[in-house]
Design a protein around this nucleic acid. Structure first.
Length: 285
DNA sequence: CACCAGGTCTCTC
DNA sequence: GAGAGACATGGT
């Protein structure tokens, strides 16, 4: 992958390791929607327009630097894929999701979003987050920002229920208040397991959600979020289905060493697409 | 009407 | 620690 910056545009000229569909459809991001020639993608209080042509991708935004980091453009995914190809049964998943990248997203946004994601489905997660932004996000003109912690911490449980959060409403109230009260989001000096334990002090954050936050908000590559799909991926890799999800997550984290997060994304996309009979392409067209 | 969706919490043993 | 049940909501 190679890119250049021209004014308000990032132009990606070699797209082997950058496929918008792979990136957006592997479950790491909820705030985007399809437009004619690409996508609109929102993060924090910013947004970009992504347009794909035959052999290049153009990203238009008022904050080029933010989205260079957001899309993880300075990382060599060729090397990552090469490394993971050294593992059995990884060739197909990597080929299938060859253009996946792990985004660098806002931590608070990840925390709130993945609390909502628990025991929920992706279309509904998206719509709840959209209602959340519409109700509380700063008006940015043609779109609404993700609400700040200060605003979120002011809401009642009834409000979160009113946007469809269901029983997670209480988790959101509690966590927003803890964040507002100075809960430390800096995990740079913590090991992976320490960071995970730290985040799990927040209401609504268990093993899986903590891994999602560490992977998508902190780019911690030893995190391997394990849900039903990764459970199936575990069976695909090892032929063993008798461990608990937590044990599977730990084993995968150790097995792929510092690359578990990347491996997880290729596997998630691969297994989910392959066993999806209804193949919901609702987003497309 | 059941079952499921990127699980977590709480209460048991 | 591991296991069982409750938990909102909307789709199939």
């Amino acid at each position: 992958m190679h890119y250049v910056i021209e004014n308000n545009r990032i132009i990606i000229t070699v797209t082997d390791d950058f496929n918008p569909q792979h990136i957006l459809d592997c479950g790491q991001v909820f705030r985007y929607h399809k437009i004619d020639a690409g996508y609109k993608i929102f993060s924090k209080n910013l947004f970009c327009i992504l347009i794909y042509e035959k052999n290049r991708v153009i990203i238009e935004t008022t904050d080029v630097n933010y989205f260079v980091t957001y899309f993880d453009l300075d990382r060599n995914y060729g090397d990552i894929k090469q490394h993971l190809l050294g593992y059995p049964k990884m060739a197909e998943p990597i080929k299938h999701g060859s253009g996946i990248r792990i985004l660098n997203q806002d931590r608070a946004e990840m925390i709130i979003s993945f609390i909502i994601s628990a025991n929920n489905n992706i279309p509904r997660i998206k719509s709840i987050i959209e209602r959340l932004c519409n109700a509380l996000g700063e008006d940015m003109g043609e779109y609404k920002a993700f609400p700040t912690i200060a605003v979120l911490a002011n809401q009642s449980e009834e409000f979160f229920r009113s946007i469809g959060a269901g029983y997670r409403a209480n988790y959101l109230v509690e966590t927003a208040r803890m964040l507002q009260n100075g809960f430390d989001l800096d995990c740079t000096n913590l090991s992976y397991s320490q960071a995970k334990k730290h985040l799990m002090q927040l209401k609504g954050i268990g093993n899986k959600v903590a891994d999602c936050i560490l992977l998508f908000g902190y780019h911690r590559q030893d995190a391997c979020p394990t849900d039903v799909w990764i459970e199936r991926a575990f069976v695909y890799l090892f032929g063993d289905s008798k461990l608990t999800r937590t044990a599977m997550s730990d084993k995968l984290s150790q097995y792929f060493k510092g690359f578990a997060g990347y491996a997880q994304q290729y596997l998630f996309y691969y297994i989910r697409e392959n066993s999806n009979q209804n193949n919901s392409k609702v987003e497309e067209e």
